[in-house]
Write a protein that binds this DNA or RNA. Structure first.
Lengths: 278, 278
DNA sequence: TTGACAAATGACCACCTGGTCATTATTATA
DNA sequence: TATAATAATGACCAGGTGGTCATTTGTCAA
């Protein structure tokens, strides 16, 4: 076993038991039977170690999931069942890692770790989305993002059962139970909450700038929707300012406030505030 | 404002921004404009501070929820809608706290904090359970624990949306959307996963001892269920040993291994291992 | 103005952290 | 065997931690 692997396995165990921050490099090196210096020959820093761990296990998990979804032999509720089963089976098999991932992803304030987490989250979303498309096609167009979130909710909450309580479970039954529930919601739920627009907002990195072109596009869309009104006029004025800045911050802020008063315009108001850095 | 409150508010803000462990007492006192000594006049330790924060906000949240469920004016899907709305509204109103709670509960290894988390979790479960009873009565007897878990999954995953992305949301719509989904599952899902037996296992504190009486009760139940077999004989021998210890650890371990081979006996095998401290 | 009591201070403690680097041990090559 | 190259060591560093306590400051009634 390479030194890198040795360290990773030792660290995995300790991190799962005590958490990332609470585990010192000292402890890891003692547990691996190597010196502190040797640790830093394999990893530039403690952060690089946890990144490597996350990359290693997440790529494995994601490729497993992808394999299930891409396999043409899996169809209907059977595909759903296998999807859930694979998820929980992976979590159970690599429970040390799963614990770390669930805990640290929620806990960390390290920017790089957060964006790594978001990246993998996005990959899982995409796989889930392709599964939903395959299973239900057009019929879930309006509710697909809600379905993704429900599925993620299931994955999260049920995984607690075996990660943090050491009880033997029938994962096959769990898969069937959740497949049935997902199927019910896919076929019958009618009230979407997460719209395309909303989902896009979450998907793009938190601090990503909105381009002028994108902003204009959204505004044009909304202007077409609106009836003649103060709000529509405000939006038109704002659009002109985006194209050719001329208004004072106070005026801009006021115009945005006007728009915000319409419930279905709050998102565009939010985007504008972000665009103008308010 | 009392000094205690002042500290709690300062700390809340810092904890939400940087996390509990990453925030030092030094920072808290600087942010509050008091000295380090003064901090320790109000709180015995940093741990006591976070306990106080959790108690304060959780009791408020739980009493809000309880109020909604106990109000006889709330019936049918409307009650469900209000339940979700209140949850998310609370999370949004006290988002600093909600962030801390979600993060630290998942992350901590402090025993006292864990049991506090479990305690509040149990309270929320009980409120949810009484709501489900009220709404669906007998018809969800088999699936009620799964419903609780699904509801908790919804609460968890959707709260991420507004806690970690700063986007304005229509919480009323969210409430309606989740109420519909919950209702669908309550009325139509047929495959339970979390049985009474299983739920009880999670509910009792992780390290709570199983009493001899309880152990015998479970074993008698299972013995009645089993056909004549090696497994049944093993269980009978184990029962005799529980009543009057006489077998060696090696034999006990072997007998438990026999039982474990039947899928539906894995839970009793687990209980026995716990009882014998294996 | 004095004195008694409580409230508040911040220098200080022992300990632990992630990370470095001059030194030493091991191995491969000639 | 001698030399060069690589691997491994652990004492050491600066900085930060939660927590303490002798000392100072503030606030009353007498």
């Amino acid at each position: 076993m390479s030194k890198k692997q040795l360290i990773m396995e030792s660290a995995l165990e300790l991190f799962a038991k005590q958490g990332f921050e609470a585990t010192s490099v000292q402890q890891i090196t003692e547990h691996s039977g190597i010196s502190k210096g040797a640790f830093y020959l394999s990893f530039k820093s403690k952060d690089e170690l946890i990144m490597a761990l996350i990359d290693h296990f997440m790529m494995q998990f994601i490729s497993d999931l992808d394999h299930i979804v891409k396999d043409p032999n899996n169809t209907g509720e059977e595909l759903l069942r296998k999807f859930f089963y694979t998820t929980f089976h992976s979590f159970q098999k690599h429970s040390d890692f799963a614990k770390i991932f669930i805990k640290e992803q929620a806990h960390t304030f390290n920017q790089e770790l957060i964006s790594k987490g978001r990246h993998f989250d996005q990959l899982i979303d995409n796989i889930t989305l392709s599964m939903l498309d395959q299973l239900y096609g057009e019929t879930v167009q309006h509710t697909k993002y809600d379905l993704i979130y429900c599925i993620k909710g299931f994955m999260h909450i049920y995984s607690h059962l075996f990660l943090f309580f050491n009880v033997p479970l029938d994962l096959n039954l769990l898969g069937r139970s959740l497949a049935e529930k997902t199927n019910l919601m896919a076929k019958q739920s009618t009230i979407p909450f997460i719209t395309d627009e909303l989902y896009e907002m979450f998907s793009e990195p938190v601090n990503k700038e909105i381009t002028t072109g994108k902003m204009i596009e959204i505004m044009d869309q909304k202007i077409r929707e609106l009836e003649e009104s103060i709000e529509k006029d405000s939006l038109i004025l704002l659009k002109q300012d985006v194209l050719e800045p001329s208004l004072s911050p106070a005026i801009i802020k006021g115009l945005i406030a006007n728009i915000k008063s319409l419930p279905h315009c709050r998102l565009i108001a939010y985007s504008l505030r972000k665009y103008y850095h308010f």
